[in-house]
């Protein structure tokens, strides 16, 4: 029963505030022999698991570290040598690999916020009923998204555990806090990120 994160999206669809709370850990570390029974591919300039999910390592997980050395994209963080080359050499085995999901970067969050903005609009447009609002609750098997659009067009989005009912009170409270502490700040210009 947890709140994962909160986003505030402006009228134009840009992300003006975001914060993460207790995001669950998904890291798994395991020792592998040669040849590697997991197929890796480069996705978005990072190494991800393409095939061969096992022991908690899932498809789409990123390679985070090799023998404790952190990996940055497709190269080692310390000496910038290629990880794939290292994984291809038999003398380096047995090898310990750490996989997990990585946190969204700020850029990805901005992208997802504007994506939600258009999904919200599509939700109204494709409605089979007259005068529908946009998406208020979106359910997936791992999380639930609650959204409230104010009359002025600002969207407050809360990501929670899927078992939580609609958190209307929290969304309302967020709007109050926004009006009190963001809008009443004389140095704040509207639709700009809240600092």
């Amino acid at each position: 029963m947890a709140v994962y994160s909160v986003f505030v999206v402006s009228r134009g669809g840009s992300l003006i505030y975001d914060i993460d709370y207790n995001v669950p850990k998904t890291d798994v570390e395991k020792t592998f022999g040669y040849p590697l029974d997991i197929v890796l591919k480069v996705f978005d300039e990072k190494l991800t698991v393409d095939f061969g999910a096992r022991d908690g390592i899932k498809i789409g997980h990123y390679l985070l570290a090799v023998n404790g050395r952190p990996v940055q994209g497709t190269v080692f963080d310390d000496d910038r040598t290629d990880v794939r080359e290292f994984l291809g050499q038999q003398q380096n085995y047995p090898i310990s690999l750490k996989f997990g999901r990585i946190k969204l970067t700020v850029n990805e969050k901005i992208m997802l916020a504007s994506m939600f903005h258009s999904l919200f609009a599509f939700g109204c447009q494709l409605s089979p009923e007259e005068r529908s609002s946009g998406i208020q609750i979106l359910e997936a098997d791992t999380f639930k998204l609650h959204c409230r659009q104010t009359l002025t067009g600002i969207k407050f989005i809360v990501l929670t555990d899927p078992r939580l009912p609609y958190v209307e009170g929290l969304l309302k409270r967020l709007y109050e806090l926004y009006s009190d502490y963001a809008l009443k700040n004389p140095y704040y210009s509207i639709d700009m990120p809240i600092r």
Binding site: P24, L104, S132, L138, E139, D141
Partner: peptide, 20 residues
Amino acid sequence: KRLSPLDCKDGFLNYQTSKY
């Protein structure tokens, strides 16, 4: 899929607006 804090199995299930 991208926003999910954990690994999705089924992914998107449903959404709800004020009317449908």
